[in-house]
Design a protein around this nucleic acid. Structure first.
Length: 299
DNA sequence: AAGACGAAAGTGGTTGA
DNA sequence: TCAACAACTTTCGTCTT
């Protein structure tokens, strides 16, 4: 099994046991040397469970992969935890299921259409299959609860995708999801609040740390800078500097400071661009940070 | 000249009466 | 429904490197 490889949590390059997760690419990367220990961990859904012996044993004993039906109805109780994995077999099953319902009644046609949209959105947002499957389950629950009636399919798809991104800690903003669904942010937001409320799905705000990882990657900053930024972020959280603040602005600010102090200087403009916030916001955030934190030179 | 700074006014969303 | 509010944006003049 591919998962087995992942279990040896020692870097084959330098022997370190410290790994960090790259959510953007679903990779497990050695903290010391940057060696990519395992790719596509998100697709295999290994990263959340690989260090949990009990879970792994359970799965080993069960043998076959967990069914798509299992997390149906269980979403509201699974907040913060990743649903079971999905492999090629699941994708095939989903496709077959999609084909099967195509000719049936109106709600099945609606579902079929929505699944197509979800696939496209997932493609343009670079989302792993696990999230797409989870999105489709949320959509299906919304459909069953008659939430789609009188609303646009795209709106409910946006809500479903956004909710499952949040549940998986996948850093995607509402704006990005909305634009992938070709709808306005306002409509996506309305739809998201409605669906989340009606389905009683708890969605904690996306943690800034997921954005830090993503921005560092997009800016091609070295791993050390990202790690430093995460440390700064933790300080900010501990100092309660984060409440009420947008996660992207915060992530942008710590990324900026980290890049500065690590001698890998990026301009406020560059960071503002990938973070989709303004330079002013970056300045305001990091000013607050510098007022409260004694910066010691990193590395 | 580019980057950073910060003041001031404007925007869109939330909250609470 | 409306006003107050906080976070954020836009714009722009000024300072720094």
């Amino acid at each position: 099994m591919a998962e087995g490889k992942f279990q040896s949590s020692r870097c084959t390059n330098c022997g370190s046991t410290d790994f960090i997760k790259d959510y953007e690419h679903g990779e497990l990367v050695c903290e010391k040397c940057g060696y990519v220990a395992e790719e596509h961990i998100v697709d295999r859904s290994a990263e959340w469970r690989a260090f949990d012996e009990e879970e792994r044993e359970k799965r080993d004993r069960a043998g076959a992969p967990l069914s798509l039906m299992i997390h149906d109805g269980g979403l509201s109780t699974q907040v913060g935890r990743a649903p079971p994995s999905m492999d090629q077999e699941h994708v095939d099953r989903m496709a077959r299921w999609q084909d099967r319902v195509r000719v049936s009644n109106s709600s099945d046609r609606n579902l079929s259409h929505a699944l197509n949209v979800i696939m496209k959105v997932g493609d343009s947002l670079n989302l792993p299959r696990t999230i797409l499957e989870s999105s489709s389950l949320i959509y299906r629950r919304a459909l069953r609860s008659k939430l789609v009636k009188g609303r646009s399919i795209h709106g409910v798809v946006a809500a479903s995708v956004y909710i499952s991104c949040k549940q998986f800690g996948m850093a995607r903003t509402l704006e990005e999801v909305a634009s992938a669904c070709a709808i306005a942010k306002k409509e996506a937001g309305r739809s998201y609040r409605y669906v989340a409320w009606e389905l009683s799905v708890l969605t904690p705000p996306t943690s800034p740390e997921f954005y830090v990882t993503r921005f560092s990657e997009q800016l091609e900053l070295p791993r050390s800078v990202e790690i430093f930024a995460l440390k700064l972020l933790k300080m900010a959280v501990d100092l309660k500097l984060t409440s009420g603040r947008g996660p992207t602005g915060l992530a942008a600010a710590v990324t900026y400071v980290a890049s500065l102090l690590a001698g890998e200087h990026k301009t406020q403009r560059e960071i503002a661009e990938v973070a989709k916030v303004t330079e002013v916001t970056i300045r305001n955030r990091y000013k607050e940070l510098l007022e409260r934190i004694e910066i010691t030179t990193p590395i």
